[in-house]
Simulated assay, not measured.
Amino acid sequence: MPDIFVNYRTIDEDTGATLIERELSRRFGSERVFRASKSIKAGRRFPQELLTAVRRSSVLVAVIGDRWADARGADGRRALDDPEDWTRREIVEAFESGALVVPVLIGRATRLNRRDLPPELVELADCQYRRLDTRNAEADLARLGDDLAEALPQLAEAERQISRIEAESDDVAGSRVGRVDGGVVQAGDYHHQQDGGASNVSNSGTFINTANGPLHTGSGDQNNEIRNGGPVTFNGDGGSYVERGRAQQWFGGGHRSDREQ
């Protein structure tokens, strides 16, 4: 179940709620952040889903824009005055369950006035708010995330776990390998600045870059002489080389194998 419930009025700040949910999901994990249009699966009964999620959440983020207090229902009444209004019900449920309620005011002009609230929601005006301004969105979202991580230790731990997983993924794919103690070096992981020739990759063996001639990776001497159109000969303990478009291997003692390149 989620730790964070994002409460919003669709006709007021659907975009702001989406922005907040996506940033908190990035930091803490999508499964920890509930937003109705994202989290309720097709065919599920939304009244039960909403009430269950808000009752089990540790914090409710109330997203409030400049139309939040004055929005009207289908009957023409102010929505906040309707006990069945879902935005209102979710906040009331959060207060009753003991959740932390954080109002997030969208834009610089939005205000939260006790006189505009029904008695059941007056407590909302006493909650310390945060502000989200599109001109300062990155810093405002970071501050909100920091506040929630400080208030809920499980969110701070979830963020640390996500950071560790991302760091491990970066190490496996696309990272530069400076030293390899055995094992396999992936071509996409090893970056070599030398153009052509051969060099040693720590204990993994020989790295050959842009080979244009016969190659020998054994410990003995190499003789590149071509005798009567025949193969290259070696005096060492074996290795691999290229001759006339064919990949050749020589293992010493006169044994040699050929394979089409």
Rank of each mutant, 00 (worst) to 15 (best):
A42G: 06
Q48Y: 10
E49A: 10
V59R: 01
R89Q: 13
W68Y: 12
D70V: 13
S58I: 00
K41I: 05
L50Y: 08
S97M: 03
F95P: 04
V54S: 01
G98R: 02
L100T: 12
A71E: 11
A74I: 15
A42D: 07
K41R: 13
S58A: 10
D82C: 04
A53S: 15
V63E: 02
D85E: 14
E84P: 00
R56Y: 05
I64K: 02
T52V: 11
L100A: 07
T87Y: 15
Q48H: 08
R88C: 11
A53R: 02
R89E: 13
G98N: 03
V61P: 01
W86E: 12
W86D: 15
E90G: 06
L100S: 06
E49V: 08
T87H: 14
A62M: 04
R72M: 14
G65W: 02
D75L: 07
A79R: 14
A69F: 14
P47D: 07
R78W: 14
G65A: 01
R44K: 12
A71N: 07
E49L: 05
A69M: 14
G43W: 04
F46G: 01
G98Y: 03
A42E: 07
R45G: 03
D70Q: 15
L51F: 05
E93M: 01
T87Q: 10
R72F: 09
E49Y: 06
L100Q: 11
R56T: 13
R88M: 11
V59P: 00
R67F: 00
A53Y: 02
D70M: 10
R67M: 00
W86L: 13
Q48K: 08
E90Y: 06
D66M: 04
L50T: 05
R88K: 14
L50R: 03
E90C: 07
D66P: 15
D75F: 08
T52S: 14
A53N: 07
R55L: 09
I91S: 05
V92L: 08
D75M: 08
V61H: 03
T52C: 06
R88I: 12
L51K: 05
V63F: 05
A53P: 01
R67V: 01
Q48G: 11
R67I: 00
E93D: 05
G65K: 00
A53G: 01
R78Q: 13
I64S: 03
E96M: 12
S57A: 15
G73T: 11
D85V: 09
P83Y: 07
G76M: 08
V101G: 00
L100K: 09
D70N: 12
R89G: 04
V61G: 01
W68N: 07
A71F: 07
E49N: 05
D66V: 06
I91K: 06
D75H: 10
G43Y: 03
D85M: 07
S58P: 01
R44E: 13
W68R: 06
V59I: 04
W86A: 13
